[in-house]
C-alpha cells in the first residue's frame, strides 16, 4: 500500500504533459522508419504490376499466347512470347533442388538440435553462416569451374542403369556440355541449405524438452523419439522452412543462369539445358529496349516471380497460423 501511495504522490509531482510530449516526436519518427517498408512494398507491387501488364494492354498479346510453350521474340512470322518454358523451368529446377536439399537440411537441423555435442555445434553453426554469406556469383562460378565439367566428363555419354535380373531400368542421353537442369538444381540445393536448416532447427528447438525426456523415459531410442515425436511436432516449422527455401530457390538469378544452359524449351531431361524466369530476365534485360514488346514480356515474367514470392509469404503465414490454432 505504501508503494501505491508513493507512486501516486510521484505521479502528482509530474507536470502535465506539454505539447512536445503530446506530439511524441520520437514515436512518430520510429514509426515512419518502420512503416517505410510498407511504402516500399506498395511501390514495388505497383511498378512491377504496371510494367507487367503492358504486354497485354499495350502490345495486345493475349493470355493464351503468353501461356504457350513457344518463346521466340525474333521469329519471322511475328514474335512469340510464350513464357511457359520459363515457369516450367523454374518449377522443375526448384523442385529437384528441394528434393536434394530437404533431407540433407532437415538431417543437419536434427544433428544440430538433437545429436551434436556442444563443440560440434560451435563449429557447424558458424560454417552455415559463412554458407549464407557466400555471394551467388561465387556459387555460380564454382558451378561452372567444378560441377559442370565434372558432369560433362563423368556422365557425358548415354546414362543408363541396368540391373542383373530386371534388365535396363532407364537410359537417357547424358550431359552434352554439363550446363543443365541438374547442375542448376545442385547449385541451388546448396544455396538453400542454410535457409531450410536454420528454420527447421528453430522448429526442433521449440519442441519442449519434457516431451523428449518423457519419450526417452518410456524406453524409446533417440531415433524413435526423433521419428515419432520430434518430426511430427515440428512438422509445420519444417514445412515453413521448405517454403522459404523454395522461395529463395525460385528467386535466385545469377548462380542459376551461369550453370543452367539457358535453352528456352520445356524441361525434358535432367541432363539437358533448361531455363528459368530469373535467368531469362537476367540475360535479356540488357539486350532489349525499354517499351518494346520483348522487354514487356520480361516485365510480365518479373510480375509472375513477384506473385510467386508474395504467395509463399501468405502460405507461410497460413502454415504458422494453423500451428498456433492447434
Amino acid at each position: 500500500m505504501a508503494q501505491l501511495t508513493t507512486a501516486y504522490r510521484v505521479s502528482g509531482l509530474r507536470t502535465r504533459p506539454g505539447l512536445v510530449e503530446r506530439i511524441d516526436l520520437p514515436k512518430r519518427v520510429v514509426f515512419l522508419a518502420a512503416a517505410s517498408m510498407i511504402a516500399i512494398v506498395v511501390l514495388l507491387l505497383a511498378f512491377i504490376a504496371w510494367q507487367g501488364i503492358q504486354l497485354f494492354v499495350k502490345d495486345g498479346v493475349s493470355i493464351g499466347q503468353v501461356l504457350s510453350p513457344n518463346w521466340d521474340p525474333l521469329a519471322d512470322g511475328g514474335p512469340q512470347f510464350g513464357i511457359l518454358p520459363f515457369i516450367a523451368g523454374t518449377i522443375a529446377v526448384t523442385a529437384v533442388a528441394l528434393l536434394i536439399s530437404t533431407p540433407l537440411s532437415v538431417g543437419l537441423a536434427l544433428f544440430l538440435s538433437e545429436v551434436a555435442p556442444q563443440w560440434a555445434r560451435a563449429i557447424v553453426q558458424p560454417a552455415l553462416e559463412i554458407f549464407v554469406g557466400i555471394p551467388s556469383v561465387v556459387w555460380g562460378w564454382l558451378g561452372i569451374t567444378i560441377l559442370v565439367p565434372f558432369l560433362a566428363s563423368t556422365f557425358g555419354g548415354q546414362v543408363s542403369l541396368s540391373l542383373p535380373v530386371v534388365g535396363q531400368v532407364f537410359s537417357m542421353p547424358g550431359f552434352l556440355t554439363g550446363f543443365s537442369w541438374l547442375a542448376g538444381s545442385l547449385v541451388l540445393s546448396i544455396m538453400v541449405l542454410p535457409t531450410i536448416t536454420s528454420v527447421s532447427y528453430d522448429a526442433f528447438r521449440a519442441v519442449p524438452q519434457e516431451l523428449r525426456t518423457g519419450s526417452l523415459a518410456l524406453g524409446t531410442t533417440r531415433w524413435q523419439t526423433i521419428r515419432h515425436l520430434l518430426i511430427p511436432s515440428a512438422l509445420s516449422g519444417v514445412l515453413t522452412a521448405i517454403v522459404l527455401g523454395m522461395t529463395r530457390a525460385a528467386g535466385e538469378a545469377l548462380a542459376v543462369q551461369m550453370v543452367i544452359g539457358n535453352s528456352p524449351t520445356l524441361p525434358a531431361a535432367i541432363t539437358q539445358p533448361v531455363t528459368t524466369l530469373t535467368s531469362q530476365i537476367t540475360l535479356d534485360m540488357g539486350n532489349t529496349v525499354f517499351g518494346e514488346p520483348w522487354q514487356d514480356a520480361l516485365w510480365t515474367m518479373s510480375l509472375v516471380l513477384l506473385i510467386i514470392s508474395i504467395t509463399s509469404v501468405v502460405l507461410v503465414r497460413v502454415i504458422n497460423k494453423r500451428r498456433m490454432g492447434s
Binding site: 510498407i38 514495388l44 511498378f47 545469377l254 537476367t282 516471380l305 514470392s309 508474395i310 509469404v313
Partner: peptide, 21 residues
C-alpha cells in the same frame, strides 16, 4: 501486422526483381 507482412514480403522478393524496380 502490416509492417511485418511488408518485412517478410521484401525479404522474399527475388533480388533480380528488386533490381528491376
Amino acid at each position: 501486422s502490416a509492417i511485418r507482412f511488408a518485412e517478410e514480403s521484401i525479404s522474399s522478393v527475388p533480388s533480380i526483381v528488386v533490381g528491376l524496380f
